[in-house]
Design a protein around this nucleic acid. Structure first.
Lengths: 239, 239
DNA sequence: TCTCCTTCTGAACACTGTTCACGATAAAGT
DNA sequence: ACTTTATCGTGAACAGTGTTCAGAAGGAGA
């Protein structure tokens, strides 16, 4: 089961040695608690002290298992990728496979409040994540894209997925403590606002006002993917 | 012209004081100081106290002009858009116009350290920014894209621009305090690292290793824009 | 000169991430 | 069984954060 170790990336931050603990505090338990706090308090309320409190433990105890908050965030980010299945590349279905990869990513980001914010400040090039990068790259390269496009496509797709989900979650967070009623009021207010802009100065915004305040994020995400993939597909066969 | 300081005699009444408030605090001066601090200390070092110190003023003075740090960040974000020229849409050149818009955005983000991080957590839908959104939308709609695509295109393009620049700046920041030499060492190390991955498990990463560690960010940005625009262009005429 | 009013100050509050000398505790050695 | 030893967790402290608020300073108007 144990594969040969992937050498640690030179830019990754040095880890604390994984000391086998008999009992309680482990990195995993800390990460679990961190997610609990994140979901309850949001990103701005995610503090080492809150995590420690969640575990009924002194703050300083955390630092024996985790080098600091940065590493904790990194570990949370890694959680995102745990247990995702990586299908074998099927050149005939590369577009659908890419979309599935993106959909899965967005879904996982949405599982935890403010997760997109954490994800955005991480660079997915640590050793643990290489298999996923490799897999996406495999799917894209199997489609017959030129290497210079393939090398960028992963970034492009990830940036869209994370950025889109981040924007989604910012809106969501902004109206977090609003009841259904005032949220609907707000929505129609926004729509009215766009529609009521001076049409001579904002003709285009007014024209698409209905579409912009439309809340079908799923559709918008699908369309965004389709646009990018069409762009990628236009390079198939090029050198 | 300031006079040389005479130490106050301990028995005398406290003199009226050192910093004459020649011209008063304004939002603009505060934002200026914030940028100075940002460039010197980075995002994590951008604190209200540092900004106040930059202006030789007590922290609490800031709160008379700015509701809090959030608003300060928003004002900084608005600065980004000040003085950008908005060309009249020319349907024949829409692709180049979109690219120019993106290039300008990236350039402005790169003018200040960590600016991409600030930008990423802002949603460009405040009243001051509407003309810019309108303008980009005008260019896109002039190209003959269906409205549902046009309504998303602005988001898609912005997300790419900001996300790309953010990733750029994360790398840049990570190796901020490195001299030229150790940075080159690091670069070849990274390239070696990718090339030295077990080829049976990471055939695709190994294959494009050279391209990934390639540092021509400008080229990658151009290519990314081209991909998205090709995707958009594929919708021209569709309904 | 006296009052009003705006602008700025100083101190305080409740937090934050991180470090470190110190105890408790359980395993290992005798 | 008793002692040693090493590890894990504690509590307190440090230096910093955003924000608030009573009050002082200074100029304008009466």
């Amino acid at each position: 089961m144990s594969q040969p170790d992937i050498p640690p990336s030179p830019w990754g931050r040095p880890r604390k040695r994984p000391v086998p603990v008999r009992h309680p505090l482990t990195r995993d338990r800390i990460v679990d608690a961190a997610f609990t706090v994140l979901d309850r308090e949001g990103y701005d309320g995610l503090s080492m002290r809150q995590v420690a409190a969640e575990l009924d433990v002194a703050v300083s105890a955390l630092y024996a298992h985790v080098s600091g908050k940065d590493e904790l965030l990194e570990l949370m980010y890694h959680r995102l990728f745990e247990g995702v299945e990586l299908p074998a590349p099927d050149p005939a279905r590369w577009q659908e496979q890419v979309k599935d990869y993106m959909r899965a990513g967005r879904a996982r980001l949405r599982e935890h409040r403010d997760m997109a914010r954490i994800s955005m400040s991480q660079v997915p090039f640590t050793a643990e994540l290489l298999p996923h990068v490799e897999q996406l790259l495999a799917i894209i390269r199997s489609a017959g894209l030129p290497d210079r496009v393939a090398a960028l496509a992963g970034d492009l797709l990830s940036v869209f997925m994370e950025g889109f989900t981040l924007e989604e979650s910012i809106w969501q967070e902004r109206y977090r403590d609003m009841d259904e009623e005032s949220w609907n009021a707000m929505r129609s207010e926004i729509q009215e606002y766009f529609a009521s802009l001076p049409p001579d100065r904002f003709p285009n915004l007014v024209a698409v006002a209905g579409l912009m305040a439309d809340e079908s994020n799923d559709y918008r995400f699908e369309l965004g993917m389709e646009i990018i993939i069409r762009g990628l597909a236009s390079y198939v066969g090029e050198k």
